[in-house]
Design a protein around this nucleic acid. Sequence first.
RNA 1: GGCCCUAUCGUCUAACGGUUAGGACAUCAGCUUCUCAAGCUGGUAAUCCGGGUUCGAUUCCCGGUAGGGUCACCA
Length: 457
Amino acid sequence: MNKSQDKEIRTRIAPSPTGDLHIGTVRTALFSYLFAKQNDGKFIVRIEDTDKERSKKEFEKDILEGFKWLGLKEDEMYRQSERTDVYKKYIKQLLDSENAYISKEESKANPPAGGAGKEIEVVRLKNPGKKVEFEDMIRGKIEFDTTELGDFVIARSIDDPLYHLAVVVDDHEMSISHIIRGEDHISNTPRQILIQEALGINRPKYAHIPLILAPDRSKMSKRRNATSITEYRQKGYISRALVNYMALLGWNPGTDRELFTLEKLIEEFKLENIQKGGAAFDIEKLNWFNREYIKRMSEDEVFENVKENLPTSIINMSEYSDAILRKIIPIISERMNVFGDIKQMSDDGELDYYFKNPEYNAKDLLWKQDTDLKTSSEHLKKIASLLEGINENDFIQDSVKEVVWGYAEEKGKGSVLWPMRYALSGRDKSPDPFALAEVLGKDETIYRLNNAINKIG
RNA sequence: GGCCCUAUCGUCUAACGGUUAGGACAUCAGCUUCUCAAGCUGGUAAUCCGGGUUCGAUUCCCGGUAGGGUCACCA
């Protein structure tokens, strides 16, 4: 708040705690953060809780935790509800200079707030009714005729400010140099400029970024789309992937590069490269980013995340062990978009067979192009005997493949490999039999092979 | 409806008057160990419409259309 440093770049995100942290808020925060950090400036979080009825502490908590999770660390944090004295001072100034006046009228507020119909006094700005124009850093010159705005209300009373007044006062008091916000605020800008001019304070620079649209290009709605960051967090998205995806939603680096860390984004970010049109949210592309980030994670890190999301039905199995889970990490991590998918995989029965002997019908062991289970049985017997020859410590997919491959090529790959894989997994679809064998180990693999042979009878 | 903003493949976008209109996701096909996944290779796919300006428009101007935003004693 040091006014002498007015050259410093200072941006802010100003969420109101009337709902969970919204995806659009996050992208605005991200752009504000990137712009500030790139210029060695400050990023400020200001909780706009002047609406006492709708503001909730739990939402504030969700918003703050969300920013923290995403790595958007603020340099300063304010709460408008703690600053009523500041606003009061400015409202008084406006009244004293006759740029605003107290108006006696009937309350329009809903019952809980003021009591509709009651006689009350509100503060209105004296609108000079002129044309206001401002330079938007993304869109260029924007012009408005403010006469139609009339003498709008800026405070419910002298110590109960409304949004526009509080925003203008705070942006000034906090020496905000660049206001980066959603384009839904474009039409708020002339009002705020009018207040600034009445107060005789400087105008910050404005950059209105496009909105995030739902996949069908309609408005993102809480009901039809996942708009809350918390939802993505709970689904098991990686925060770095989310940040990366959101940065590229409406912005581009001018190159073909798509994978960016926060640090790299700070380096490359350019306000001028922000798109003007709204961008549709595409979950598929987000998923792709998330998969890329999973690929880049260490196996230990993936293991921790997978185990965290593993249903208790698996963990509580008597056959469960961390050792087996660790072995299947490479197999399952390339089969999921987000860590939350692990639950669906479990529900679909794609996990059980790694831990316990699968249940299936003997006829399923028959490859679709074969006609007689007897040949399948012979193949299985041969495979079992072949595998017996491998040293237990050397029972990895390469060696399993090595001993089985020749036989499979000779007898027909499908005819041999299908029953082998089915015997190990009990499923139509699964990883290949060699990978399965390695996970299961020599004893269990041969046990399951014999099991299948017995099933055929 | 008034006012404001916007308009390139299905989606995110590149091309800042001259390109076979490029990339990524998705999609399709082929290859890779039987199935699945991953991977690799290749393919389909776009300048909203109509007028100008210009030797030449995706690009500049105007109009239309479409989409979005906003019109509170919410933020």
